[in-house]
Amino acid sequence: MSMIKRNRIALIFLLVALMAPLFTDNQYYLYIVTLSFIWTIAVYGMNLIGGYTGQLSLAHAGFFAIGAYSLGLLTVDANVPYWFAFVLACLITTVVGFFVGLIALRTKEHFFAIYTLCVGYIIYLVIYQWDELTGGVRGLIGVPPPSPIGPISFESAESNYYLVLAFLVLVFVFMKFLTESLIGRTYVAIRNSEELAQTIGINTMRQKLVSFVISTFLAGLAGALYASFVRFLGPEISYTMTTFDMLTYLIVGGIGTLYGPLVGTFLIVTITQSLQFMEEYRMLIFGPLLVFLVIFYPRGIVGGIQMWKAKRQFKKRQKMKRTSSTSTHEGGD
């Protein structure tokens, strides 16, 4: 009972998400929501390394593209069975992420951001220029949809929606377990002060590397899902602008919060997609919005709500303390 109560927001989200296809016949809405779920997974990756561990990675569109192109090339050109290719795509991204992280994480703060920005650009340039492999500007066409698992096939929009939702739920649960555990606290300690983290015996390099590798895995997973959902890949998914889009989702939702990626990505993807004219000029609003948020609400929508709730709870507790002379010690969270 208490587990349900503690996770009631997540469960309400899940319930709404499960029922959503029942209320609409509009395939386009379903398409957009599925797309936003895919991006959410990638943004969770960015959140883990940027929000929790404090290292702003600007290469994540690149990792997303590595996952997407790996799946695309393995299925289209190499005829590898779909789910095997899917696992391989995630694995390839993770391995690239490991080696990039090994070097990139030796740099700090600004250097790390610039370094990863350049890594992202290199990935873009390689995809763009190496057209014998990737199709270059023409892109990669005809990525197959996921193959059936047993009796379930993934031809319809609904089935794709539920498949992506299933992955999102897994990622969410994983992030919840991770960030609320001692391991997540370790990442936050590094974000807060790498110096202090080292003096309390944390191998910061190793912890940052693990966090980075998980974050690239999530980007690759999202990329692989994207490839077989959209079924066409162009080099622009790896461009810096895609990373900046992801960053916008994260900042609006709330960097360093569990629900931030979910809220931010869903809001912005659905808003921009439903207002077509926004597509091209979205940054006219989102650019200043980013600036406004980091100055006034650096923890975004979710962070803002959390602050407000924490303040209210604190006031309530003060009041309780005043009314009852014997204050009970509260343990656990």
Binding site: L178, S181, L182, I183, R185, T186, V188, I200, V210
Partner: peptide, 25 residues
């Protein structure tokens, strides 16, 4: 987090919610 250095749990402990993680927390 000051006591983290005396613990051994890693990412997989968080993923599987192992008893070791609970104990160390």
């Amino acid at each position: 987090i000051g006591h983290r250095l005396r613990t051994k749990s890693g990412v997989f402990d968080a993923l599987l919610q192992t008893p070791r993680l609970k104990r160390e927390e």
